[in-house]
Design a protein around this nucleic acid. Structure first.
Lengths: 142, 142
DNA sequence: TTATCTGCAAAAGGTTTGCAACTGA
DNA sequence: TCAGTTGCAAACCTTTTGCAGATAA
């Protein structure tokens, strides 16, 4: 997992603890290239013999979102989360398999009314990844 | 409301009907400069003596989202919708009062892996509008 | 040592569905 | 005329909460 100690510092700064459960969950979450619903992340944990309650998953995702280590996505009414490491970036999302790629290109410059104070922005590109374009049914699997 | 007949055409194209209820709701929705939750839109309707069921509001928002006449936002775990007219644009969102401004500037160019097919994108800027910067408590009202 | 975290079960909220009556095209 | 829409109530699911026991710092 990228910068484990950095993550711990980020959490501790806000009085969050990196418990054993969170450590294991975080590892699975950060190694997944797909965005996951809380239930899917929970299921992933169980598959890897990480016994953990669904409530704990919700609470971890809340903490990660607050520390900007996770980004929520709303796709067709369903909320997914993706792990986000420590640097600002943009997302490339495959709508079939829900894989999320990061692009670290420069941020777009947008003119805004001068009395509007921009605090942050989000740029997401949606489409189909290579694998899903070529699969007969157009993805959904893997 | 902008381009009422255009909207009707868009809806009819997908076999949706512009009923009296939808017509009234759409008018209120499109005239609101804020993003609204389904419950807030429902409440807004009732305030304007538009008697309508909450279920109908949900169903209209579903239809509008499918025809790209509405865009959903996920802010702190809550789902809001904003009316979106007929042209592609980007959003400027005030996190205090939930006002949404549109900017019609050119779309950012992002290099993506050549095997990824981009279908659409979304660029949203978040911050504080003029009124909310200057109000003592930082907004939430109006 | 103590503020924070965990798991469970229960509660709460938001969203969807089934159905009979209605209505736009 | 009839496919699509409406309102209501019930069903559904996701998310949150309370609490007693555990644990990181």
């Amino acid at each position: 997992m990228q910068n484990e100690s950095q993550i711990k510092v980020l959490l501790n700064e806000q009085k969050f603890r990196l418990t054993n459960e969170r450590h294991l969950l975080l590892k699975l979450f950060s190694e997944s290239s797909r965005m996951l619903t809380p239930a899917q992340l929970h299921e992933l944990a169980l598959e890897h013999q990480v016994k953990i309650g669904l409530t704990t998953v919700y609470r971890l995702l809340e903490v990660l979102t607050k520390t900007e280590l996770a980004t929520p996505f709303l796709i067709e009414g369903v909320i997914y989360y993706t792990f986000c490491g420590c640097n600002h970036h943009h997302h490339l999302v495959c709508l079939s398999c829900h894989q999320v790629l990061e692009t670290h290109q420069s941020c777009p410059t947008v003119e805004v009314p001068e009395d509007f104070r921009v605090e942050h922005h989000r740029l997401d590109l949606y489409g189909k990844c290579s694998a899903c374009q070529h699969s007969i049914e157009g993805g959904e699997s893997h």
